[in-house]
Simulated scan of single mutants.
Amino acid sequence: MKLRYILLFFIIFLLPSFQIEANNQPPNIYVVQQNDSLPRIAEKYRISVEELKLTNGIQRDTVNAGQKLWVPFTYEVMHGETLAEIAAKYRSTPEIIKQVNHLTSNQLYPGQLLKIMPKQMVMNGQHILMTKEEFKDWLFNQQVTREVNLIQQHHTWKPSYRHFKGNNHFQLLNSMQQFHRQTMKWNNIAQNITIFPDGRVAVSRPLNDAPEGTIGPIANRNGIAIENLGDFDIGQDQMTKEQKEAIVYVTAALALKFDLVPSIDTITYHHWWHYKTKERVLDHGKSYEVKSCPGTNFFGGNSTKSAKKNLYPLVLEKMKEIRDSTQ
Rank of each mutant, 00 (worst) to 15 (best):
V148E: 07
L150E: 10
I151R: 01
Q152S: 04
H155S: 14
T156R: 05
T156D: 03
W157Y: 14
K158W: 10
P159G: 13
S160R: 13
Y161C: 04
R162E: 12
R162I: 07
R162T: 11
R162Q: 14
H163P: 02
K165R: 15
G166T: 11
N168Y: 02
N168W: 01
H169Q: 14
H169S: 13
F170L: 09
Q171A: 14
L172K: 13
L173G: 00
N174F: 08
S175Y: 10
M176C: 08
Q177G: 10
Q178S: 12
F179D: 14
F179K: 15
R181H: 06
M184I: 12
W186A: 11
W186V: 09
N187V: 08
N187T: 11
N187Q: 13
N188F: 10
N188H: 13
I189V: 14
A190V: 05
N192W: 00
N192G: 05
I193L: 00
T194S: 13
T194W: 01
T194Q: 07
I195N: 02
F196K: 07
F196D: 10
P197I: 08
D198A: 08
R200W: 05
R200Y: 06
V201W: 01
V201G: 02
A202H: 01
V203F: 02
V203R: 03
S204I: 11
S204P: 00
S204H: 05
S204T: 15
R205K: 12
R205H: 02
R205T: 06
P206C: 11
N208Q: 09
N208C: 04
D209E: 14
P211I: 03
P211D: 12
E212K: 06
G213S: 12
I215Y: 04
I215N: 05
I215P: 00
P217F: 14
P217L: 14
I218K: 10
A219V: 05
N220S: 12
R221M: 09
N222P: 03
N222S: 11
G223V: 06
A225W: 00
A225T: 10
I226P: 01
E227C: 02
N228T: 08
L229W: 03
D231N: 13
F232H: 10
F232I: 07
I234G: 12
I234M: 15
G235D: 13
D237V: 02
D237Y: 03
Q238G: 04
Q238H: 11
Q238M: 04
M239W: 04
M239H: 05
T240M: 02
T240L: 03
K241C: 03
A246D: 05
A246N: 02
I247T: 00
Y249M: 09
T251L: 00
T251G: 00
A252V: 03
